[in-house]
Design a protein around this nucleic acid. Structure first.
Lengths: 215, 215
DNA sequence: CTCTTTTCAATGCACTCGCAATGTAAAGGC
DNA sequence: GCCTTTACATTGCGAGTGCATTGAAAAGAG
């Protein structure tokens, strides 16, 4: 059955194996043979769908950000139509945090890629637009939803930069095992409190009302 | 002149070369031979002072955190005796941000190590205490210096977690070339504004008064 | 049928890796 | 004087790497 195969499917299969290897043993362990073994295929097949290792890496990087995009979209859709800006941001950022094992694995890969691209600036350029768009979106939601903005006490652009940095930093700490997921979520809520002002007393989530120790 | 050599000095020399290699080509390019070449010595000598590659890595990691410690100490000392909590935190966190080329190089190495330890949990344990101590210190300074804490609008523990996460995240973004140093500093100041309340009008730095575009 | 294209598998090559083993030369200890 | 210890340098081995090459088998196209 050689002729008729779905390239995207094969590449996805291989990328999946790559992610497993990278998550378990680090990016430096990602070799043609290891990935092939993890995928249960021959090394020749991997080479057939990715002519070079770098090509495989770039594809895997795209898979990671695509997965995150999907997570964010689903989290937002789960909120229904026209969610409040704060709730929307919370759902979005929480979706990007490595709070379960699946996202932890992806996060490890993303972290490895971060270090990888820090040395290959050409590959990193694609991420710039992504971050810029994300920041603009966050800034817009902050401007639309925070009363502190109209009071002039919060600058949406800087708050957006800070909020995304908090998310990124919390992700790092959780991945490193410094904080448990609850602490990261609590810190995220605290940050939203700072930006949006104290939560009006709603009866939905625990929010930031109850205090827990954080280490 | 074989007998009398300073081991610490030699190891520092080698670690220095390791840092250069890691900063320029990534941690995966750190091999006995590369490091030896960068240090201008033979591979045998490297092997003499570090019996295994992992031993060399661990030492280099210690060098990185020691450098950061030195930077923080100097930045704080430059503030004179009994600095205000907010100024102290600003100086400390700014010292940890990759704002010049030297710190950028160190930051790249630290980032690579982050990904490295994410796969070797045993090595990461040492970093936990460091982070915990740092967080406790930051929380203490926030509790001592922020009027919002006594008003109950800021929880020092969570604010400390958030503040450190902001620093970490900003560092990542700056390293990735997403933000220029000024934007990172502005975001850091904005975060301090959120935690400590609006700055009383002092005539020292630009602080957060002037607005600039951020991307 | 033949011919071509696609899909995979296997092999080999040149290279790098960590690390052990070995050798050599210099500085004390005696 | 010798002898041990330290401080390197050199070499080599087995393993692993990316990648090019080769080949084979299957499915249309004509």
């Amino acid at each position: 059955m050689p002729k008729r195969v779905d390239h995207r499917e094969r590449r996805a299969l291989i990328a999946d194996a790559l992610m497993r290897v990278a998550a378990e043993q680090g990016l430096e362990a990602v070799s043609l043979r290891h990935v092939a073994a993890a995928a249960g295929v021959s090394a020749g097949m991997v080479q057939h769908y990715f002519r070079t290792r770098d090509e495989m890496m770039v594809f895997a990087l795209a898979v990671v950000s695509e997965r995150n995009e999907t997570r964010v979209r689903r989290a937002i859709e789960a909120l229904g139509a026209t969610p409040a800006p704060r709730a929307l941001l919370r759902a979005m950022l929480a979706a990007l945090l490595p709070l379960d094992e699946e996202r932890r694995a992806d996060g490890r890969v993303a972290l490895a890629f971060l270090a990888y691209t820090a040395v290959r600036p050409a590959v990193a350029a694609a991420l710039h637009d992504e971050t810029a768009a994300l920041r603009a979106f966050v800034a817009d939601r902050i401007a639309a939803g925070s009363p502190l903005v109209t009071e002039g006490r919060v600058d949406p652009e800087r708050a957006a930069v800070g909020l995304l940095a908090v998310m990124e930093g919390l992700g790092i700490y959780v991945l490193g095992g410094h904080y448990p997921p609850e602490t990261a979520l609590a810190a995220l809520d605290a940050q939203l409190d700072l930006i949006f002002g104290p939560e009006p007393p709603t009866r939905d989530r625990a929010g930031s009302a109850r205090r827990r120790r954080s280490a």
